[in-house]
Design a binder for these strands. Structure first.
Lengths: 350, 350
DNA sequence: ATGAAAGCGCTAACAC
DNA sequence: GTGTTAGCGCTTTCAT
């Protein structure tokens, strides 16, 4: 109940040893008389002493904390990821400092802080593009960095195979007999959006289906406040895009690939409001496999997000021990989950 | 691009001043020759210098970080809360250290760490019960603590008015003409679950409706792995509970109050599987207003979670500046959101 | 107004 | 094996 925190000096004095010795028992040093160690340990326990993280950090030049810089979590994707991260971090007895970026313009500020404040030993940068300027600084300072859901040649990264995932989604729709397949994408500035678009195109091309410009929508073309937010992967954007699609009376698609489940939610609402039904009037495949997808009977492309988070941390911790390790780029494969929204096999009618 | 990080000494030397002076410009000290300040500022900028958080922390005995101890986030509630927390923390240029408790038995470990490592200036303890032992330590050390979604006489707290929320939900159902109203609750060990139960009882009693034991379920009575997890507020638990309820042929309720929306999701699934419809066969009101609720047309009790998070941080920061401030217990009111699941007004038939 | 010096609580190199 | 001491990078008196 003492007011002032107990320090290593208090322990040393009470145990009748020097502070060096106390420090040694703290750091599991080998060269110690078992008897001395026991005595010190006893005092530590009596005094309820615990080392001061900042003092240790300063002396050791090691913080035992890592930072995760996340775009202000829009939803399930980041939550699952964070769970995985937290799980791994905690397992290794590290602390997690969370920087969440509310305004993408300010990404640099957060990176700069994580980089220069030396509050953490390493950084996880999630779904965010790293400016070249900072990329160099990370290398210069040898501060380990792992990119998650993004990549850069100079840094380790863990990404989902977005292109292949999208390819599988659209391929599945083609197999079901659809030929007029739309895509509703997030902002095209976002890398995942670009990759998913590429997968969409590849599948169509392979099947010899001519891409139709009117069937390719992305959030940046939309009007409406909410749709513009962040990366354009949101409910509102999906809703608006689907409304647009449904207006195209003559060229209305029979199926649509939604670049995210959350957009799919909005789209489904628009379909219902239009008095149409899914999958009969329009089939759908999403991306993410958020918790809700199963509930909605939405076919989708599942990303193993928790695992990604864990893996990112594991990799980062490797880098901490060996900062000169070679760069590695992990690519995690997706899984197509087929539910009701993809409908039955369609006989051709064209 | 220099290997070693730039320190206050580098700045001092290059600016031709003492380190004290550099420190002063860093700390906005008043007594400084404007010209000196400008010169130092210039050098700081040239060298891209930024103070070392740990060194500052050690010297100032202040970390500019707070911790949030969260039960391994089960869902939307914690995400929204965290968003609010992050928003406020970031606004005040503090850092957020996240401790997420995967195993409730280990709560003490995390509290202990936050308490004794002195890595943070204050702690937010969320939805977790604080052991008396630690409660005293927080007071002894004068480490500010704010309880969120939990309370304790010796500490500041922010809670939702669970009892009133539940009361309003059930009252609403009564107004719609229901007399046989069930409750599906989380684990009764959880304080919110207890409070919601109290609200349920109060509403029934006020309406002169006799409580029926068979209509009062909570997750702890359920069998099944998933249902037991954490606080019992989960989809699986809702599903199982509703199945049980639907089995009671003769006493099947006409309405049910679900203590959380996520349980409601599971319950709705069970209802559909039983070939019944909501709200005709069974009306429902949930609790939380998760994103999905609107989508499901689920009437529910909305908790302002983001706001709670913000407010908790604001209060904690107040406490940092004035550790001897009087304890305050904030109680946030809920809002009843009426959607389709509550059905139309029912004519009595009994 | 500003330089010098004493800590903050710990680690690690150096003595014995 | 263990005590002593010099930092780690900063803030903050205390002089001047």
């Amino acid at each position: 109940m003492s007011k002032a925190a107990v320090t290593i000096y208090d322990v040393a004095k009470k145990a009748g040893v020097g502070i060096g010795t106390v420090s040694r028992v703290l750091n599991q040093s080998q060269r110690l008389a078992p008897e001395t160690r026991a005595r010190v340990l006893q005092v530590i326990s009596d005094l309820n002493y615990q080392p001061h993280a900042f003092a240790q950090g300063l002396a050791r030049k090691k913080t035992f904390a890592i930072a995760a810089i996340v775009p202000f979590f829009t939803g399930y994707f980041y939550v699952e990821l964070l769970k995985g991260i937290q799980h791994a971090v905690s397992k290794h007895k590290y602390d997690l400092v969370l920087y969440s970026v509310d305004d993408l313009k300010k990404t640099g500020t957060y990176i700069r802080r994580a980089l220069q404040e030396r509050r953490v030993d390493g950084v996880l940068l999630i779904s965010l593009k790293i400016p070249e300027k900072y990329s160099e600084q990370f290398q210069g300072r040898k501060l380990p960095l792992v990119l998650v859901d993004a990549s850069h040649p100079s840094h380790d990264s863990i990404t989902v195979n977005n292109k292949d995932g999208a390819y599988r989604a659209v391929h599945h729709l083609l197999e079901r007999g659809h030929r007029s397949i739309a895509i509703v994408n997030g902002h095209l500035e976002s890398i995942p959006a670009q990759e998913r678009f590429a997968g969409y195109q590849k599948a169509l091309q392979e099947a010899g289906v001519e891409p139709v410009k009117d069937l390719m929508l992305s959030s940046d073309e939309l009007e409406g406040e909410a749709a513009i937010l962040n990366d354009g992967f949101n409910k509102e954007a999906g809703y608006l895009a689907m409304q647009l699609l449904l207006k195209r009376k003559c060229t209305r698609p029979t199926a649509v690939f939604m670049a995210s489940d959350i957009q799919a939610m909005g789209a489904i609402k628009a379909i219902r409001e239009a008095g149409l039904s899914m999958p009969d009037d329009i089939a759908m495949v999403g991306f993410d496999d958020i918790e809700l997808a199963e509930y909605l009977g939405l076919s989708t492309v599942r990303q193993p997000m928790f695992k990604m988070g864990e893996q990112a941390v594991e990799r980062l911790l490797c880098l901490l021990n060996d900062p000169d390790a070679e760069r590695r780029h992990f690519r995690i494969e997706t899984e197509l989950v087929i539910r009701e929204s993809s409908g039955q096999i369609r006989t051709l009618e064209s």
